[in-house]
């Protein structure tokens, strides 16, 4: 895509680009370059000099059981968040789509959680499930189940998944609702006249026609679970118990800032860079396709 009509001169556009180029160079390209550079070194414990190890940091990481465990944790965490959040949102969107009067009021009430920071969402859920004072844990206790996510791996994972999915419901709801409203009513009515009941219409018409939205949300939610849930995990579990909720992004932070292992943290950044790259390519590929529809 190019403009036919343009202005002359090259000094003015350079000046216009300057702020963005400066900020990007200093706070993006330089740090990204540093991450790649540092990933090839192991600094000595005093930080005075560092030793070149080539791909050593990567070799170490890819054979390190803790790092591989974190990969697995991330995979479990992001699949659960994606599935839980998308199914809840789809359920709400299907109902909202059937309601004509009052749909606006429901929508307003459902977009709240989008504005709540993941870290604040973490605090809200932590409060409900706090083993000593939480309302949910108290009720669970009455039912004979002793909840303690501080000690139990699965409960910790369950709680961060719930809080992260909750944070994401509004976003998924809005996109699903838009997708549902784009489906021509006449198609659905034709099926209804043919005698197809609600679930049959849902599986044979709505689900296939909604698939572009679903696929888009799938990618975006995985990106969200990978990179934007740090606040939830830091506030609720700090990656624990032991490593049970240490997802990859959390490990970059805890190895780099808490463990002061800069070489390894940088190498992890580079690995994540590849992951983001792949996800971005998938996303753009798909968007290209959507444009041609």
């Amino acid at each position: 895509m190019e403009k036919r009509v343009t202005f002359n001169g090259w000094a003015l556009p350079m000046v216009l680009l300057l702020p963005q180029v400066l900020v990007t160079a200093v706070f993006f390209f330089w740090p990204a370059g540093q991450a790649i550079y540092q990933s090839a070194f192991i600094p000595d414990p005093f930080g005075l000099k560092s030793q070149f190890v080539g791909l050593g940091n990567f070799e170490f990481l890819l054979t390190d059981p803790f790092y591989l465990a974190s990969f697995k944790t991330t995979a479990i965490f992001s699949s659960l968040v994606t599935v839980v959040s998308m199914s809840a949102a789809l359920w709400l969107a299907v109902m909202a789509d059937r309601i004509i009067k009052g749909a606006g009021a429901y929508r307003t009430l459902l977009i709240w959680p989008y504005a709540v920071a993941p870290a604040v969402a973490g605090v809200l859920w932590l409060f409900m499930f706090n083993p000593n004072v939480g309302l949910a844990s108290w009720y669970l206790d009455q039912l004979g189940y002793s909840w303690n996510h501080v000690l139990n791996d699965n409960e910790a994972m369950g709680l961060v998944v719930l809080a992260s999915s909750w944070s994401r419901i509004s976003y998924n709801f809005l996109f699903f609702l838009a997708g549902l409203q784009a489906i021509p009513k006449s198609v659905i009515e034709a099926a209804a006249i043919d005698g197809a009941h609600f679930w049959r219409r849902f599986w044979t018409i709505v689900v296939p026609l909604l698939s572009p939205t679903t696929f888009f949300l799938l990618v975006v939610n995985v990106v969200y679970a990978f990179f934007e849930t740090f606040g939830v995990i830091h506030t609720i579990t700090s990656g624990g118990p032991q490593q049970a909720t240490t997802i990859l992004v959390y490990k970059v932070y805890s190895d780099g800032f808490v463990g002061q292992d800069l070489g390894s943290s940088a190498a992890q950044s580079v690995i994540l860079l590849f992951v983001v790259g792949i996800l971005t390519v998938i996303q753009f590929r798909y968007i290209e396709r959507r444009v041609h529809y």
């Binding site: 993006f28 330089w30 991450a35 860079l273 971005t280």
Partner: peptide, 15 residues
């Protein structure tokens, strides 16, 4: 577009 701040925190912090 490709690199959220979460991924490059240590070097960005140094800058």
């Amino acid at each position: 577009l490709m690199l959220p701040v979460e991924v490059r925190i240590v070097p960005t912090y140094e800058v």
